[in-house]
Design a protein around this nucleic acid. Structure first.
Length: 216
DNA sequence: CACCAGGCAAGTA
DNA sequence: TACTTGCATGGT
């Protein structure tokens, strides 16, 4: 991990340039915290567009709430989320999460989030299908906890800026952001959203850095 | 046609 | 610990 004292300023400069370019992105695009969690699971290694189709299907079936997912047969669930890919795996993951929510918090997200968020993070990571990024997306965007989300775009952008070498682990990169930025839910929310937008627009696997506001 | 997308788990060495 | 593979759809 980079520990040079200039890192905080570099991270803030990246934030300012992206924020100036994209403006306030108001993440996460969802109508409820539960919808955020469902979206976080469905978007694993999947284009967000395909997730929106699946979310729409769940809404049409009127099951986009904890009890609705809990009571829906796994095969029915899989059919509804077909467009998001890996639908058999993801149907099990949704079912596993709502079972956890039901068993531990009587199906109430407010109760789940009413505990130390690092303790909750550990519990979420015990659930099959919830890894680092999904857990942190749930904590930040559904629970409004100050936890920085690291994803493939974040890694790629920081690598191309020479801030990361490429072999760093998730926890190291997260510590880099959280140790060099103010602890702030709105800041973490917007910063990760900006990095995803920048990744989609200017930092794909095929390099298209010419128009990037970061001027790599 | 090939490649990619807002990961994760399980298996192998 | 460090790789590799399966999971699967829809857009470009």
């Amino acid at each position: 991990m980079e520990t040079a004292p200039g890192i905080a300023k570099r991270l803030l400069k990246i934030y300012d340039r992206l924020d100036g370019h994209f403006g306030n992105l108001r993440w996460w695009p969802a109508d409820s915290p539960f919808e955020v969690i469902v979206g976080a699971i469905l978007t694993q290694n999947t284009a967000w567009r395909n997730v929106t189709y699946a979310i729409a299907k769940l809404k049409e079936a009127d099951v986009l709430h904890p009890q609705g997912i809990y009571e829906t047969p796994i095969d029915t669930l899989a059919a509804l989320i077909r467009s998001s890919g890996y639908y058999n795996v993801k149907a099990r993951r949704l079912a596993t999460f709502v079972r956890f929510l039901h068993d531990e918090y009587n199906g109430q997200l407010d109760k789940m989030f009413a505990q130390d968020h690092w303790l909750l993070r550990g519990k979420l990571l015990q659930i099959q299908g919830i890894g680092d990024e999904t857990a942190d997306s749930i904590l930040l965007y559904a629970g409004e906890k100050p936890v920085f989300v690291i994803d493939a775009y974040t890694r790629r952008i920081l690598e191309r800026h020479g801030i990361l070498a490429g072999k760093e682990r998730y926890a190291e990169i997260q510590a880099l952001f959280m140790g060099n930025l103010p602890v702030s839910v709105p800041l973490y929310n917007q910063y990760h959203a900006l990095l995803v937008n920048a990744g989609k627009s200017f930092c794909g696997k095929e390099r298209r850095c010419e128009a990037c506001p970061l001027r790599i």
